[in-house]
Design a protein around this nucleic acid. Sequence first.
RNA 1: GCGGAAGUAGCUCAGCUGGUAGAGCAUCAGCCUUCCAAGCUGAGGGUCGCGGGUUCGAAUCUCGUCUUCCGCUCCA
Length: 516
Amino acid sequence: MTQQADLFKKLVAHSKEYGFIFQSSEIYDGLAAVYDYGPYGVELKNNIKDYWWAAMVQMHDNIVGLDSAIFMHPKTWKASGHVDAFNDPLVDNKDSKKRFRADVLIEEEIDKILGKADKEVEKAKKKFGDSFDEALYRTTNPRVLEYTQKAQVVTDRLTAAMSNGDMVAMKTIIEDLDITDPDTGSRNWTDVRQFNLMFNTQLGNIAGEEGKLYLRPETAQGIFVNFLNVQKSTRQKIPFGIAQIGKAFRNEIVARQFIFRMREFEQMEMQFFIRPGEEMKWYDYWKQTRMNWHRKIGTPESKLRFKDHDNLAHYANAAVDIQYEFPFGFKELEGIHSRTNFDLTSHQDLSGKKLQYFDPELNENYVPYVLETSVGVDRMFLAMMSESLQEETVPDADGNDSTRVVMKLHPALAPIKVAVLPLLKNREELVKAGTDVFNKLKFSFQCQYDEKDAIGRRYRRQDAIGTPFCVTIDFETLENNTVTIRERDSLKQERVHIDKIEEIVRQRVDMKTLLL
RNA sequence: GCGGAAGUAGCUCAGCUGGUAGAGCAUCAGCCUUCCAAGCUGAGGGUCGCGGGUUCGAAUCUCGUCUUCCGCUCCA
Protein backbone atom coordinates (compact mmCIF):
# COMPACT_ATOMS: atom_id res chain seq x y z
CA MET A 1 0.00 0.00 0.00
CA THR A 2 2.81 2.41 0.82
CA GLN A 3 4.42 1.45 -2.44
CA GLN A 4 1.14 2.15 -4.20
CA ALA A 5 0.75 5.48 -2.45
CA ASP A 6 4.31 6.27 -3.40
CA LEU A 7 3.59 5.44 -7.02
CA PHE A 8 0.56 7.70 -6.97
CA LYS A 9 2.59 10.56 -5.51
CA LYS A 10 5.16 10.10 -8.25
CA LEU A 11 2.44 10.10 -10.85
CA VAL A 12 1.04 13.40 -9.61
CA ALA A 13 4.50 14.97 -9.46
CA HIS A 14 5.42 13.65 -12.90
CA SER A 15 2.17 14.96 -14.35
CA LYS A 16 3.04 18.44 -13.21
CA GLU A 17 6.74 18.42 -13.91
CA TYR A 18 6.38 17.25 -17.47
CA GLY A 19 3.39 19.36 -18.41
CA PHE A 20 0.56 16.83 -18.35
CA ILE A 21 -1.64 18.20 -15.58
CA PHE A 22 -1.64 21.40 -13.56
CA GLN A 23 -3.93 22.39 -10.77
CA SER A 24 -6.42 25.01 -11.85
CA SER A 25 -5.69 28.61 -10.83
CA GLU A 26 -2.57 27.49 -9.02
CA ILE A 27 -1.25 31.02 -8.48
CA TYR A 28 -4.38 31.70 -6.41
CA ASP A 29 -3.81 28.61 -4.25
CA GLY A 30 -5.75 26.45 -6.65
CA LEU A 31 -9.40 25.59 -6.97
CA ALA A 32 -10.42 22.37 -5.28
CA ALA A 33 -10.94 19.40 -7.58
CA VAL A 34 -10.39 21.34 -10.79
CA TYR A 35 -7.40 20.64 -13.00
CA ASP A 36 -5.94 21.88 -16.28
CA TYR A 37 -4.31 19.75 -18.94
CA GLY A 38 -0.84 20.90 -19.97
CA PRO A 39 0.81 20.68 -23.40
CA TYR A 40 1.45 16.92 -23.29
CA GLY A 41 -1.71 16.24 -21.33
CA VAL A 42 -3.93 17.75 -23.98
CA GLU A 43 -2.25 15.65 -26.67
CA LEU A 44 -2.71 12.46 -24.71
CA LYS A 45 -6.28 13.35 -23.88
CA ASN A 46 -7.09 14.14 -27.50
CA ASN A 47 -5.59 10.83 -28.56
CA ILE A 48 -7.74 8.95 -26.06
CA LYS A 49 -10.80 10.73 -27.41
CA ASP A 50 -9.77 10.03 -30.99
CA TYR A 51 -9.37 6.35 -30.20
CA TRP A 52 -12.84 6.22 -28.68
CA TRP A 53 -14.44 8.20 -31.47
CA ALA A 54 -12.84 6.06 -34.14
CA ALA A 55 -13.83 2.83 -32.39
CA MET A 56 -17.42 3.95 -31.82
CA VAL A 57 -18.43 6.29 -34.65
CA GLN A 58 -16.02 5.52 -37.47
CA MET A 59 -16.15 1.75 -37.05
CA HIS A 60 -19.94 1.47 -36.73
CA ASP A 61 -22.09 2.56 -39.62
CA ASN A 62 -25.05 2.73 -37.24
CA ILE A 63 -23.43 5.08 -34.73
CA VAL A 64 -23.27 8.79 -35.39
CA GLY A 65 -21.80 11.69 -33.47
CA LEU A 66 -23.29 14.70 -31.76
CA ASP A 67 -22.03 17.74 -29.90
CA SER A 68 -24.86 19.18 -27.89
CA ALA A 69 -24.68 22.34 -25.78
CA ILE A 70 -23.77 22.33 -22.11
CA PHE A 71 -26.77 24.56 -21.36
CA MET A 72 -30.11 22.88 -21.75
CA HIS A 73 -33.67 23.85 -20.99
CA PRO A 74 -34.16 23.55 -17.22
CA LYS A 75 -37.05 21.16 -17.76
CA THR A 76 -34.54 18.67 -19.14
CA TRP A 77 -33.23 18.10 -15.64
CA LYS A 78 -36.70 17.85 -14.19
CA ALA A 79 -37.49 15.10 -16.70
CA SER A 80 -34.21 13.31 -16.17
CA GLY A 81 -34.78 13.18 -12.42
CA HIS A 82 -31.68 15.20 -11.59
CA VAL A 83 -33.51 18.10 -9.98
CA ASP A 84 -35.12 15.79 -7.45
CA ALA A 85 -32.53 13.09 -7.03
CA PHE A 86 -29.46 15.32 -7.00
CA ASN A 87 -30.70 17.29 -4.02
CA ASP A 88 -29.86 15.95 -0.59
CA PRO A 89 -30.21 17.61 2.80
CA LEU A 90 -27.29 16.27 4.82
CA VAL A 91 -26.40 16.49 8.47
CA ASP A 92 -23.30 15.37 10.34
CA ASN A 93 -23.05 14.02 13.81
CA LYS A 94 -20.20 15.87 15.47
CA ASP A 95 -19.36 13.02 17.84
CA SER A 96 -19.53 9.99 15.60
CA LYS A 97 -18.34 11.96 12.55
CA LYS A 98 -20.97 10.17 10.52
CA ARG A 99 -23.04 11.86 7.86
CA PHE A 100 -26.71 11.22 7.32
CA ARG A 101 -29.44 12.36 5.02
CA ALA A 102 -31.57 14.53 7.27
CA ASP A 103 -34.83 13.53 5.60
CA VAL A 104 -34.01 9.84 6.02
CA LEU A 105 -33.24 10.33 9.71
CA ILE A 106 -36.58 12.03 10.24
CA GLU A 107 -38.46 9.42 8.22
CA GLU A 108 -36.91 6.69 10.34
CA GLU A 109 -38.06 8.54 13.45
CA ILE A 110 -41.60 8.75 12.03
CA ASP A 111 -41.51 4.99 11.46
CA LYS A 112 -40.45 4.52 15.07
CA ILE A 113 -43.43 6.56 16.30
CA LEU A 114 -45.82 4.63 14.10
CA GLY A 115 -44.23 1.46 15.39
CA LYS A 116 -45.23 2.45 18.90
CA ALA A 117 -48.80 2.90 17.77
CA ASP A 118 -48.70 -0.54 16.15
CA LYS A 119 -47.45 -2.03 19.38
CA GLU A 120 -50.43 -0.60 21.25
CA VAL A 121 -52.73 -2.11 18.67
CA GLU A 122 -51.02 -5.48 18.96
CA LYS A 123 -51.41 -5.41 22.73
CA ALA A 124 -55.10 -4.58 22.46
CA LYS A 125 -55.64 -7.29 19.86
CA LYS A 126 -54.29 -9.91 22.26
CA LYS A 127 -56.41 -8.53 25.05
CA PHE A 128 -59.74 -8.41 23.23
CA GLY A 129 -59.32 -11.43 20.98
CA ASP A 130 -61.78 -11.99 18.13
CA SER A 131 -64.09 -9.18 19.05
CA PHE A 132 -61.33 -6.62 18.41
CA ASP A 133 -62.17 -3.89 15.90
CA GLU A 134 -58.81 -2.58 14.79
CA ALA A 135 -60.09 0.35 12.70
CA LEU A 136 -62.27 1.56 15.56
CA TYR A 137 -59.43 1.16 18.07
CA ARG A 138 -57.03 3.12 15.91
CA THR A 139 -59.43 6.05 15.65
CA THR A 140 -60.48 6.12 19.28
CA ASN A 141 -57.70 4.91 21.58
CA PRO A 142 -56.06 8.04 22.99
CA ARG A 143 -52.55 6.64 23.11
CA VAL A 144 -52.66 5.35 19.54
CA LEU A 145 -54.17 8.60 18.40
CA GLU A 146 -51.42 10.53 20.11
CA TYR A 147 -48.77 8.57 18.24
CA THR A 148 -50.42 8.70 14.84
CA GLN A 149 -51.14 12.39 15.19
CA LYS A 150 -47.59 13.10 16.22
CA ALA A 151 -46.32 11.13 13.24
CA GLN A 152 -48.66 13.07 10.98
CA VAL A 153 -47.50 16.41 12.35
CA VAL A 154 -43.88 15.49 11.83
CA THR A 155 -44.60 14.20 8.33
CA ASP A 156 -46.28 17.49 7.45
CA ARG A 157 -43.41 19.50 8.87
CA LEU A 158 -40.92 17.39 6.93
CA THR A 159 -42.86 17.76 3.70
CA ALA A 160 -43.09 21.51 4.19
CA ALA A 161 -39.41 21.87 5.02
CA MET A 162 -38.36 19.75 2.06
CA SER A 163 -40.52 21.53 -0.47
CA ASN A 164 -39.41 24.93 0.81
CA GLY A 165 -35.81 23.82 1.02
CA ASP A 166 -35.88 25.08 4.60
CA MET A 167 -32.78 23.56 6.21
CA VAL A 168 -33.25 25.40 9.50
CA ALA A 169 -36.67 23.80 9.89
CA MET A 170 -35.11 20.40 9.20
CA LYS A 171 -32.65 20.95 12.03
CA THR A 172 -35.46 22.05 14.33
CA ILE A 173 -37.38 18.83 13.63
CA ILE A 174 -34.31 16.77 14.46
CA GLU A 175 -33.90 18.69 17.71
CA ASP A 176 -37.58 18.59 18.65
CA LEU A 177 -37.73 14.84 18.15
CA ASP A 178 -34.50 14.28 20.06
CA ILE A 179 -33.21 12.21 17.20
CA THR A 180 -29.98 10.46 18.06
CA ASP A 181 -27.22 8.97 16.02
CA PRO A 182 -28.38 5.36 15.40
CA ASP A 183 -24.95 3.99 16.30
CA THR A 184 -23.73 6.15 19.16
CA GLY A 185 -26.85 7.80 20.53
CA SER A 186 -25.29 11.23 20.24
CA ARG A 187 -27.52 14.30 19.75
CA ASN A 188 -24.66 16.55 18.77
CA TRP A 189 -25.67 17.52 15.21
CA THR A 190 -24.31 20.07 12.79
CA ASP A 191 -26.69 22.31 10.88
CA VAL A 192 -28.53 20.66 8.03
CA ARG A 193 -27.02 21.60 4.71
CA GLN A 194 -28.39 21.21 1.27
CA PHE A 195 -26.16 19.64 -1.29
CA ASN A 196 -27.26 20.14 -4.84
CA LEU A 197 -24.94 18.26 -7.09
CA MET A 198 -25.89 20.40 -10.07
CA PHE A 199 -24.24 23.75 -10.63
CA ASN A 200 -26.63 26.49 -11.56
CA THR A 201 -26.31 29.83 -13.21
CA GLN A 202 -28.51 32.53 -14.67
CA LEU A 203 -29.77 32.99 -18.18
CA GLY A 204 -29.41 36.59 -19.23
CA ASN A 205 -30.37 39.07 -16.57
CA ILE A 206 -33.42 37.23 -15.36
CA ALA A 207 -33.11 36.57 -11.66
CA GLY A 208 -34.82 33.82 -9.70
CA GLU A 209 -36.34 30.55 -10.86
CA GLU A 210 -37.33 31.93 -14.26
CA GLY A 211 -33.83 32.25 -15.62
CA LYS A 212 -32.30 29.38 -13.72
CA LEU A 213 -29.98 27.27 -15.83
CA TYR A 214 -27.92 24.25 -14.88
CA LEU A 215 -24.55 23.15 -16.10
CA ARG A 216 -25.26 19.66 -17.35
CA PRO A 217 -24.36 16.92 -14.86
CA GLU A 218 -24.17 14.38 -17.67
CA THR A 219 -23.98 14.54 -21.45
CA ALA A 220 -26.61 11.86 -22.03
CA GLN A 221 -29.62 14.19 -21.94
CA GLY A 222 -28.32 16.16 -24.91
CA ILE A 223 -28.50 12.93 -26.85
CA PHE A 224 -32.00 12.01 -25.66
CA VAL A 225 -33.57 15.33 -26.54
CA ASN A 226 -32.00 15.13 -30.01
CA PHE A 227 -33.01 11.54 -30.55
CA LEU A 228 -35.55 12.25 -33.30
CA ASN A 229 -33.48 15.01 -34.95
CA VAL A 230 -30.60 12.62 -35.39
CA GLN A 231 -32.69 9.64 -36.36
CA LYS A 232 -34.56 11.57 -39.05
CA SER A 233 -31.67 13.58 -40.47
CA THR A 234 -29.43 10.55 -40.86
CA ARG A 235 -32.23 8.06 -41.67
CA GLN A 236 -31.15 5.69 -38.93
CA LYS A 237 -32.96 2.47 -38.25
CA ILE A 238 -33.09 0.83 -34.86
CA PRO A 239 -30.74 -0.36 -33.52
CA PHE A 240 -28.53 2.71 -33.80
CA GLY A 241 -26.38 4.80 -31.52
CA ILE A 242 -25.50 8.44 -30.89
CA ALA A 243 -22.05 9.21 -29.53
CA GLN A 244 -20.89 12.35 -27.80
CA ILE A 245 -17.79 13.61 -26.04
CA GLY A 246 -18.20 16.58 -23.76
CA LYS A 247 -17.83 18.29 -20.44
CA ALA A 248 -20.15 17.67 -17.51
CA PHE A 249 -20.26 19.29 -14.09
CA ARG A 250 -21.04 17.98 -10.63
CA ASN A 251 -20.71 19.82 -7.38
CA GLU A 252 -19.24 16.86 -5.57
CA ILE A 253 -19.22 16.98 -1.79
CA VAL A 254 -15.94 15.17 -1.67
CA ALA A 255 -13.88 15.41 -4.80
CA ARG A 256 -10.51 13.84 -4.46
CA GLN A 257 -7.85 11.49 -5.70
CA PHE A 258 -6.34 13.87 -8.22
CA ILE A 259 -8.26 13.86 -11.49
CA PHE A 260 -10.31 10.80 -10.55
CA ARG A 261 -13.24 12.79 -9.24
CA MET A 262 -13.40 16.34 -10.48
CA ARG A 263 -16.10 18.95 -10.39
CA GLU A 264 -15.65 19.61 -14.11
CA PHE A 265 -15.00 16.48 -16.11
CA GLU A 266 -15.35 15.02 -19.56
CA GLN A 267 -17.42 12.06 -20.66
CA MET A 268 -17.45 9.89 -23.74
CA GLU A 269 -20.97 8.60 -23.97
CA MET A 270 -22.87 6.53 -26.44
CA GLN A 271 -26.60 5.92 -26.22
CA PHE A 272 -27.70 2.91 -28.24
CA PHE A 273 -31.39 2.87 -29.17
CA ILE A 274 -32.95 -0.57 -29.34
CA ARG A 275 -36.20 -2.48 -29.45
CA PRO A 276 -37.89 -3.01 -26.09
CA GLY A 277 -37.13 -6.48 -24.86
CA GLU A 278 -33.76 -6.70 -26.56
CA GLU A 279 -31.90 -4.81 -23.86
CA MET A 280 -30.17 -7.78 -22.29
CA LYS A 281 -28.81 -8.93 -25.63
CA TRP A 282 -27.28 -5.51 -26.28
CA TYR A 283 -26.20 -5.15 -22.67
CA ASP A 284 -24.02 -8.25 -23.09
CA TYR A 285 -22.84 -7.12 -26.50
CA TRP A 286 -21.65 -3.72 -25.30
CA LYS A 287 -20.12 -5.15 -22.14
CA GLN A 288 -17.83 -7.29 -24.23
CA THR A 289 -17.22 -4.68 -26.92
CA ARG A 290 -16.26 -2.03 -24.44
CA MET A 291 -14.03 -4.37 -22.45
CA ASN A 292 -12.19 -5.25 -25.65
CA TRP A 293 -11.62 -1.57 -26.32
CA HIS A 294 -9.81 -1.26 -23.01
CA ARG A 295 -7.75 -4.37 -23.58
CA LYS A 296 -6.71 -3.33 -27.07
CA ILE A 297 -4.97 -0.23 -25.78
CA GLY A 298 -2.72 -2.45 -23.73
CA THR A 299 -4.35 -2.43 -20.31
CA PRO A 300 -3.59 -5.85 -18.79
CA GLU A 301 -6.58 -8.10 -18.15
CA SER A 302 -5.61 -8.52 -14.52
CA LYS A 303 -6.19 -4.80 -13.96
CA LEU A 304 -9.64 -4.70 -15.54
CA ARG A 305 -12.82 -6.20 -14.19
CA PHE A 306 -16.58 -5.97 -14.34
CA LYS A 307 -18.40 -4.85 -11.22
CA ASP A 308 -22.17 -5.17 -11.09
CA HIS A 309 -24.08 -2.36 -9.41
CA ASP A 310 -25.68 -3.34 -6.15
CA ASN A 311 -28.13 -0.47 -6.16
CA LEU A 312 -29.59 0.44 -9.51
CA ALA A 313 -30.20 4.08 -10.35
CA HIS A 314 -33.76 5.22 -10.89
CA TYR A 315 -33.49 4.85 -14.66
CA ALA A 316 -31.70 1.53 -15.00
CA ASN A 317 -32.70 -2.12 -15.02
CA ALA A 318 -29.15 -3.41 -15.34
CA ALA A 319 -25.84 -1.71 -14.76
CA VAL A 320 -22.22 -2.74 -14.66
CA ASP A 321 -18.95 -0.87 -14.26
CA ILE A 322 -15.70 -1.60 -15.96
CA GLN A 323 -13.15 -1.03 -13.23
CA TYR A 324 -9.43 -0.46 -13.50
CA GLU A 325 -6.96 -1.08 -10.73
CA PHE A 326 -5.69 2.41 -10.00
CA PRO A 327 -2.84 2.91 -7.54
CA PHE A 328 -5.59 3.48 -4.97
CA GLY A 329 -7.57 0.35 -5.82
CA PHE A 330 -10.14 -0.90 -8.32
CA LYS A 331 -12.34 2.01 -9.36
CA GLU A 332 -14.88 2.77 -12.04
CA LEU A 333 -13.56 3.67 -15.46
CA GLU A 334 -16.68 3.14 -17.51
CA GLY A 335 -20.32 2.43 -16.85
CA ILE A 336 -22.61 0.33 -19.00
CA HIS A 337 -26.25 0.87 -18.19
CA SER A 338 -29.48 -0.47 -19.50
CA ARG A 339 -31.51 2.74 -19.14
CA THR A 340 -34.80 1.26 -20.37
CA ASN A 341 -37.10 3.87 -21.92
CA PHE A 342 -37.05 5.97 -18.76
CA ASP A 343 -35.42 9.07 -20.24
CA LEU A 344 -37.23 9.19 -23.56
CA THR A 345 -40.60 8.52 -21.93
CA SER A 346 -39.95 11.13 -19.31
CA HIS A 347 -39.01 13.76 -21.92
CA GLN A 348 -42.02 12.76 -23.99
CA ASP A 349 -44.32 13.25 -21.01
CA LEU A 350 -42.90 16.57 -19.90
CA SER A 351 -42.45 18.11 -23.35
CA GLY A 352 -45.63 16.73 -24.85
CA LYS A 353 -43.62 15.82 -27.97
CA LYS A 354 -43.64 12.26 -29.18
CA LEU A 355 -40.24 10.58 -28.98
CA GLN A 356 -41.12 7.40 -30.76
CA TYR A 357 -39.80 5.30 -33.56
CA PHE A 358 -41.80 3.55 -36.20
CA ASP A 359 -40.36 0.10 -36.66
CA PRO A 360 -41.17 -1.01 -40.22
CA GLU A 361 -40.36 -4.64 -39.49
CA LEU A 362 -42.75 -4.83 -36.56
CA ASN A 363 -45.08 -2.32 -38.14
CA GLU A 364 -45.51 -0.49 -34.85
CA ASN A 365 -44.55 2.67 -32.95
CA TYR A 366 -42.65 2.52 -29.70
CA VAL A 367 -40.39 4.47 -27.39
CA PRO A 368 -37.01 2.80 -27.88
CA TYR A 369 -35.06 1.29 -25.04
CA VAL A 370 -31.58 2.65 -24.44
CA LEU A 371 -28.29 0.98 -23.73
CA GLU A 372 -25.64 3.42 -22.51
CA THR A 373 -21.87 3.21 -22.43
CA SER A 374 -20.17 6.05 -20.58
CA VAL A 375 -16.43 6.47 -20.10
CA GLY A 376 -14.81 9.15 -18.00
CA VAL A 377 -12.15 10.72 -20.21
CA ASP A 378 -10.17 11.96 -17.25
CA ARG A 379 -10.33 8.58 -15.55
CA MET A 380 -9.16 6.95 -18.74
CA PHE A 381 -6.33 9.47 -18.85
CA LEU A 382 -5.39 8.67 -15.25
CA ALA A 383 -5.53 4.95 -15.98
CA MET A 384 -3.22 5.36 -18.96
CA MET A 385 -0.82 7.45 -16.91
CA SER A 386 -0.78 4.98 -14.00
CA GLU A 387 -0.36 2.04 -16.31
CA SER A 388 2.46 3.49 -18.38
CA LEU A 389 4.61 5.39 -15.89
CA GLN A 390 7.52 3.17 -14.93
CA GLU A 391 10.99 3.31 -13.49
CA GLU A 392 13.62 1.06 -14.97
CA THR A 393 17.24 0.31 -14.34
CA VAL A 394 19.30 0.57 -17.50
CA PRO A 395 23.05 0.76 -18.14
CA ASP A 396 24.51 4.24 -18.59
CA ALA A 397 27.41 5.29 -20.80
CA ASP A 398 29.95 3.68 -18.45
CA GLY A 399 27.96 0.47 -18.11
CA ASN A 400 26.79 1.33 -14.59
CA ASP A 401 23.19 1.11 -13.49
CA SER A 402 21.07 4.19 -13.92
CA THR A 403 17.39 4.83 -13.43
CA ARG A 404 15.21 5.85 -16.30
CA VAL A 405 11.70 7.13 -15.93
CA VAL A 406 9.70 6.07 -18.91
CA MET A 407 6.07 6.31 -19.89
CA LYS A 408 5.25 3.20 -21.85
CA LEU A 409 2.15 4.61 -23.46
CA HIS A 410 0.69 2.87 -26.44
CA PRO A 411 2.35 4.62 -29.42
CA ALA A 412 -1.07 5.64 -30.74
CA LEU A 413 -1.71 7.58 -27.53
CA ALA A 414 1.73 9.13 -27.10
CA PRO A 415 1.67 12.95 -27.12
CA ILE A 416 4.79 13.18 -29.27
CA LYS A 417 5.35 10.46 -31.87
CA VAL A 418 8.90 11.23 -33.00
CA ALA A 419 11.75 13.29 -31.65
CA VAL A 420 14.40 14.41 -34.12
CA LEU A 421 17.83 14.77 -32.55
CA PRO A 422 21.04 15.85 -34.27
CA LEU A 423 23.93 14.11 -32.53
CA LEU A 424 25.80 17.39 -31.98
CA LYS A 425 24.48 20.89 -32.10
CA ASN A 426 27.73 22.62 -32.95
CA ARG A 427 28.01 20.96 -36.36
CA GLU A 428 26.05 22.99 -38.81
CA GLU A 429 25.60 20.07 -41.23
CA LEU A 430 24.00 17.90 -38.56
CA VAL A 431 21.67 20.65 -37.42
CA LYS A 432 20.70 21.35 -41.02
CA ALA A 433 20.00 17.68 -41.76
CA GLY A 434 18.02 17.36 -38.52
CA THR A 435 15.92 20.40 -39.24
CA ASP A 436 15.16 19.03 -42.70
CA VAL A 437 13.98 15.70 -41.31
CA PHE A 438 11.87 17.48 -38.69
CA ASN A 439 10.28 19.78 -41.23
CA LYS A 440 9.34 16.78 -43.32
CA LEU A 441 7.96 14.64 -40.51
CA LYS A 442 5.91 17.37 -38.90
CA PHE A 443 3.36 17.15 -41.68
CA SER A 444 2.58 13.59 -40.60
CA PHE A 445 3.11 13.44 -36.86
CA GLN A 446 3.34 15.45 -33.69
CA CYS A 447 7.13 15.85 -33.63
CA GLN A 448 9.75 17.48 -31.49
CA TYR A 449 13.19 18.80 -32.44
CA ASP A 450 15.82 18.89 -29.71
CA GLU A 451 19.52 19.68 -29.91
CA LYS A 452 20.19 20.72 -26.33
CA ASP A 453 22.37 18.56 -24.05
CA ALA A 454 24.00 15.21 -24.62
CA ILE A 455 22.15 12.66 -26.71
CA GLY A 456 21.52 10.35 -23.75
CA ARG A 457 19.81 13.08 -21.81
CA ARG A 458 17.59 13.89 -24.74
CA TYR A 459 16.56 10.25 -25.02
CA ARG A 460 15.58 10.27 -21.36
CA ARG A 461 13.60 13.44 -21.76
CA GLN A 462 11.59 11.82 -24.50
CA ASP A 463 11.18 8.65 -22.41
CA ALA A 464 9.66 10.76 -19.65
CA ILE A 465 6.86 11.97 -21.90
CA GLY A 466 6.37 8.64 -23.65
CA THR A 467 7.71 9.43 -27.13
CA PRO A 468 7.91 6.04 -28.89
CA PHE A 469 10.61 6.96 -31.45
CA CYS A 470 13.78 9.03 -31.49
CA VAL A 471 15.46 9.72 -34.79
CA THR A 472 19.13 10.59 -34.47
CA ILE A 473 21.04 12.43 -37.16
CA ASP A 474 24.75 11.50 -37.16
CA PHE A 475 27.72 11.82 -39.48
CA GLU A 476 26.68 8.80 -41.47
CA THR A 477 23.45 10.60 -42.29
CA LEU A 478 25.48 13.17 -44.18
CA GLU A 479 27.07 10.45 -46.29
CA ASN A 480 24.17 8.17 -47.18
CA ASN A 481 20.92 9.72 -45.90
CA THR A 482 20.39 7.11 -43.22
CA VAL A 483 19.47 7.78 -39.60
CA THR A 484 19.17 5.68 -36.47
CA ILE A 485 15.69 5.21 -35.13
CA ARG A 486 15.53 4.33 -31.46
CA GLU A 487 12.56 2.54 -29.98
CA ARG A 488 11.47 3.66 -26.53
CA ASP A 489 10.71 0.35 -24.85
CA SER A 490 13.44 -1.89 -26.22
CA LEU A 491 16.09 0.85 -26.49
CA LYS A 492 17.02 -0.84 -29.78
CA GLN A 493 18.38 1.27 -32.59
CA GLU A 494 17.99 0.56 -36.23
CA ARG A 495 19.67 2.32 -39.13
CA VAL A 496 17.19 3.22 -41.82
CA HIS A 497 16.96 5.50 -44.83
CA ILE A 498 15.40 8.90 -44.17
CA ASP A 499 12.56 8.10 -46.55
CA LYS A 500 11.62 5.06 -44.45
CA ILE A 501 11.08 6.90 -41.16
CA GLU A 502 7.52 7.89 -41.83
CA GLU A 503 6.44 4.37 -42.74
CA ILE A 504 8.10 2.80 -39.70
CA VAL A 505 6.57 5.29 -37.31
CA ARG A 506 3.17 5.12 -38.94
CA GLN A 507 3.02 1.35 -38.55
CA ARG A 508 3.17 1.72 -34.80
CA VAL A 509 1.31 4.94 -34.08
CA ASP A 510 -1.62 4.48 -36.42
CA MET A 511 -4.99 4.05 -34.67
CA LYS A 512 -5.73 1.40 -37.25
CA THR A 513 -3.70 -1.11 -35.26
CA LEU A 514 -6.17 -0.67 -32.40
CA LEU A 515 -9.35 -0.89 -34.37
CA LEU A 516 -8.84 -4.19 -36.14
C1' G B 1 -18.17 17.93 6.04
C1' C B 2 -15.20 15.38 10.24
C1' G B 3 -10.33 13.36 11.87
C1' G B 4 -4.96 12.76 10.73
C1' A B 5 -0.58 14.48 7.91
C1' A B 6 1.63 18.04 4.80
C1' G B 7 2.60 22.99 2.11
C1' U B 8 10.19 26.41 1.73
C1' A B 9 13.28 27.47 -6.00
C1' G B 10 10.36 24.01 -11.86
C1' C B 11 11.16 18.90 -8.94
C1' U B 12 12.86 16.25 -4.27
C1' C B 13 13.90 18.14 0.21
C1' A B 14 17.31 20.54 4.43
C1' G B 15 16.82 24.71 7.65
C1' C B 16 18.32 22.33 15.69
C1' U B 17 15.58 25.47 21.04
C1' G B 18 12.86 32.56 16.80
C1' G B 19 18.15 36.40 14.38
C1' U B 20 15.75 38.22 7.77
C1' A B 21 16.96 31.12 3.20
C1' G B 22 20.24 26.60 1.32
C1' A B 23 21.51 21.65 -1.34
C1' G B 24 20.95 18.14 -5.29
C1' C B 25 18.59 17.75 -9.78
C1' A B 26 16.22 20.84 -13.43
C1' U B 27 16.27 25.68 -16.45
C1' C B 28 19.04 29.48 -19.52
C1' A B 29 23.83 31.26 -22.06
C1' G B 30 28.77 29.96 -23.69
C1' C B 31 32.64 26.26 -24.33
C1' C B 32 33.38 21.08 -24.91
C1' U B 33 31.23 16.45 -26.57
C1' U B 34 30.58 10.93 -32.57
C1' C B 35 24.54 7.39 -29.25
C1' C B 36 21.41 6.36 -23.57
C1' A B 37 20.58 11.32 -17.21
C1' A B 38 29.08 13.45 -19.13
C1' G B 39 32.37 17.88 -18.02
C1' C B 40 33.81 23.21 -17.39
C1' U B 41 32.40 28.58 -16.79
C1' G B 42 28.62 31.82 -15.81
C1' A B 43 23.39 33.30 -15.01
C1' G B 44 18.30 33.42 -13.65
C1' G B 45 14.70 31.79 -10.14
C1' G B 46 11.83 31.90 -3.48
C1' U B 47 6.55 38.07 -0.54
C1' C B 48 9.17 30.20 3.04
C1' G B 49 0.66 28.66 0.58
C1' C B 50 -2.24 33.11 2.24
C1' G B 51 -3.96 36.44 6.34
C1' G B 52 -3.88 37.96 11.43
C1' G B 53 -1.37 37.60 16.43
C1' U B 54 2.92 37.26 19.97
C1' U B 55 7.98 39.48 19.60
C1' C B 56 13.01 44.42 18.99
C1' G B 57 12.88 40.45 15.28
C1' A B 58 8.79 34.81 12.63
C1' A B 59 10.17 29.87 7.43
C1' U B 60 10.52 28.64 12.81
C1' C B 61 5.69 29.99 18.14
C1' U B 62 0.16 30.84 17.88
C1' C B 63 -4.82 31.44 15.60
C1' G B 64 -7.58 31.46 11.20
C1' U B 65 -7.91 30.29 6.10
C1' C B 66 -6.78 27.89 1.31
C1' U B 67 -4.78 23.67 -1.14
C1' U B 68 -3.06 18.55 -1.39
C1' C B 69 -2.65 13.46 0.45
C1' C B 70 -4.69 9.43 3.81
C1' G B 71 -9.02 7.55 6.63
C1' C B 72 -14.35 8.15 7.39
C1' U B 73 -18.73 9.84 4.77
C1' C B 74 -21.01 10.39 0.00
C1' C B 75 -21.41 8.75 -4.98
C1' A B 76 -26.20 8.23 -11.18
